[in-house]
């Protein structure tokens, strides 16, 4: 049996007019419009376009929730296996609409969704992590190629077979890394790559260097004598027995520990559970990682106002950057709520 596909397009590709018609609300047709003919041909015996849903680009952009809901209703009525949206090329509003409706169709209707856009289409920036999209050129002159790629990807996804890497299957990656097995070993690949690089040939790294986010520095504390200061650590320093079951590596959580009644960390009250370094010295004296003893002395001497009542800690080894960032946000919320003025974070 042929798979059922609904095509989503804008007013322009539906032949209903250009910018002057961009405000038209969603409607559906049983006929094949615009790129539909090319898709029908590309799908061959495997799938067919069972309906077309049209929405004006401005309408979608200006009434995004309403447009989404109406379009979903129209799409659902066709009982499709798949939604194909666009291709949007470099049309910004159209790209956003395609990205939004594909995201919604996947989530709400639990069906496959595919779109296509130019690399700089703003839809990609916003929805690229959610949807399968193929790269296109920036204008409709690339229609034939885009339809071929989109239909191939849609059929691949509908087949239920495991999806290969973006590089091989020809879609924009969604920012996710997945393990695959190559034909050659890592050592063989490395030497091939080195020879290409040496001979000045084009070469492809297997991991592009990521760009870490930077932020402008926070303003300094003005009055240190009344400042409340927190100590935090990713060095795996926790109360003995690790009450929050923080993992020794690849941490999934962090702990908040009351240190208000402690002056010194000792092997009796605290320990290191970190799996990434030799813990001999941290076990002997956990202050070597989380410096409670000296901070307490400095507090008593009046070098700063007050040590925050809690220490926030986790383990940093093999912990993904995404997890570390979310711990940071959670700890940041806590410190903000409790009126902390500055923090010292130690890492191993």
């Amino acid at each position: 049996m042929k798979k059922r596909v609904v095509l989503y397009i804008n007013q322009f590709f539906a032949g209903m007019g250009g910018e002057e018609s961009a405000h038209i609300p969603p409607e559906s047709k049983n006929t094949i419009l615009g790129p539909g003919a090319a898709f029908t041909q590309a799908f061959g015996d495997e799938a067919e376009i069972v309906g077309t849903v049209i929405c004006g680009d401005s309408y979608y952009g200006e009434h995004i929730e309403k447009a989404r809901e109406e379009c979903l209703k129209l799409i659902r009525a066709f009982e499709p296996d798949c939604l194909v949206a666009g291709p949007a090329f470099n049309a910004g509003r159209y790209g956003l609409a395609c990205g939004d409706i594909c995201t919604a169709a996947q989530r709400e209707l639990n069906i496959t969704a595919v779109t296509g856009w130019y690399s700089e289409n703003p839809g990609r920036e916003l929805y690229g992590a959610n949807v399968f999209a193929v790269p296109t050129v920036d204008s409709a002159r690339g229609m034939k190629d885009a339809v071929a790629k989109m239909s191939r990807l849609a059929l691949r996804l509908m087949s239920g077979e495991p999806m290969g890497p973006a590089r091989e299957e020809g879609y924009f990656h969604r920012g996710i890394r997945k393990n695959f097995f190559h034909e050659k070993t890592g050592a063989q690949r490395a030497i091939d790559l080195a020879l290409q690089k040496f001979h000045g040939e084009a070469f492809q790294t297997e991991l592009e260097m990521p760009v870490f986010k930077k932020i402008p520095p926070a303003a300094p504390v003005k009055d240190i004598k009344s400042a409340k200061i927190a100590i935090c650590s990713s060095g795996g320093i926790v109360p003995k027995g690790n009450p929050d079951h923080i993992r020794v590596s690849s941490a999934m959580n962090w702990g908040k520990y009351d240190i208000s009644k402690l002056d010194d960390l000792t092997p009796e009250n605290y320990e290191s559970i970190h799996g990434g370094y030799d813990r001999t010295w941290a076990l002997e004296d956990p202050d070597r990682v989380l410096p409670l003893d000296e901070m307490r002395k400095l507090e008593r001497e009046g070098a700063f106002g007050k040590l925050y009542e809690y220490a926030c800690t986790t383990t940093g080894t093999a912990t993904s950057v995404a997890n570390a960032e979310s711990f940071g946000r959670e700890i940041g919320e806590l410190l903000k709520k409790d009126g902390v003025d500055a923090a010292i974070l130690t890492s191993t």
């Binding site: 999806m163 890394r177 695959f180 190559h182 690949r189 991991l207």
Partner: peptide, 14 residues
């Protein structure tokens, strides 16, 4: 994930 490159495992964008 041996980093001498013993096996054929790799990691790709999806």
């Amino acid at each position: 994930t041996n980093e001498l490159g013993c096996s054929k495992i790799g990691c790709e964008w999806i």
